[in-house]
Design a protein around this nucleic acid. Sequence first.
DNA 1: GAATTAATTGAACGTTCGTTTTATTAATGC
DNA 2: GCATTAATAAAACGAACGTTCAATTAATTC
Lengths: 216, 216
Amino acid sequence: MARTTGSDGEKTEAAVREAAVSLIARLGYEAMSMRQLAAEVGVQAAALYRYFPTKEDLLFTLMREHMEGLLEAWNAARPAAVDPAARLAAYVENHIAFHIARRHATHVSNMELRSLSHERLTQILKLRTAYEKELRAILRDGAEAGVFEIDDVGLTAMALIQMMTGVIVWFRPGERLSIAEVTTTYLSMTMRLVGAKIDAYSAARPLGRAKDAVAL
Amino acid sequence: MARTTGSDGEKTEAAVREAAVSLIARLGYEAMSMRQLAAEVGVQAAALYRYFPTKEDLLFTLMREHMEGLLEAWNAARPAAVDPAARLAAYVENHIAFHIARRHATHVSNMELRSLSHERLTQILKLRTAYEKELRAILRDGAEAGVFEIDDVGLTAMALIQMMTGVIVWFRPGERLSIAEVTTTYLSMTMRLVGAKIDAYSAARPLGRAKDAVAL
DNA sequence: GAATTAATTGAACGTTCGTTTTATTAATGC
DNA sequence: GCATTAATAAAACGAACGTTCAATTAATTC
């Protein structure tokens, strides 16, 4: 046999991407074979090479589009406000929503960096750095405005990102907590962590400890 | 050739473990070949099978000993105090010191879980859960005593562990920040995150205890 | 110093890997 | 409806994989 009835390049490519994200997230990039991926899509391995010249090209494409999607999502969600607390809240909400919605792709982008060539690794890290820079700017503005209490902006940014991204490790939709509950809790933890003095975003609940915590 | 002059089983096994941790952390378990590992140690691939029956046995041994070491370190560092803030401070200090001292092994234990068989995965997760349970107990006690302000104990524990373990991703000894500085900052972030009302433990205080516990 | 044990080599096994090549069939354009 | 292009199958490539086995030599025991 050769070309099959109803075959369509666009559909096949989309199916390859989807199956690849899922398989790499579950098995790891090295452990996933091209034959395994092809079987998941329902084609022969050779057919994959019509869409991606090498296995690494496939990985790189998935990672790059994921990182670009993250930056686009933030650009779309970024508030017009100048208030650092409002900007930080938007950052946290966008980050958690995006990463929960794309758990598998996040896993791939975070865990398989070592399988990229040096040049491509650099490209991905560039995108990641640009995204992290946004958070550092918010933290710096808040610290300078005196609404945040931060020891070290760079270190705090890394701590926050690790904390937020970690959600995908344990969060499973439909279990004990809803996405909204998780986001609310992470928001209040974030605001306390940065020592936000105006705790407007958890004011709905009886918190207001920020002033006490600022004692140092 | 066969047995080489000066060869010693114990030394070889130790060299294999050390090289394996380093190589797996750098390349990933699947990407590291037994021949590559053997070359790093300075023997032929067949010699490895004198010490570890399979590649997976090697991985499992490294992971189990790492997790057991973490629990032992905490048992040694665990303070007699009942004050939740003091216990939390000790937990944070021990966690950071241990993970920075064993960056490579932590990477292996966190990233290569999917390469274990189901049964062995369960064993490792059991150890991990036991370790996390210690943190949850501290947070619960603090919340019940009214010295911490915590929305959700389980979620806060996961957030803290992700945040602290994330140190190994970006921390490099000898760069901008010392281990002591990083630990101090993480301590104060932790205390703020849990809404600690008595913030005495982010003040400058000796960190010697946790470090000693990790001494190899 | 002979016998035994410990440590390792070198070669080989069968399998699987990513990838390429060629042939074949479906869809499309005119 | 014929020529062209798109999409795939089938088979094969050499290389690398984890692992095994027999042979060989160093160290130890008595």
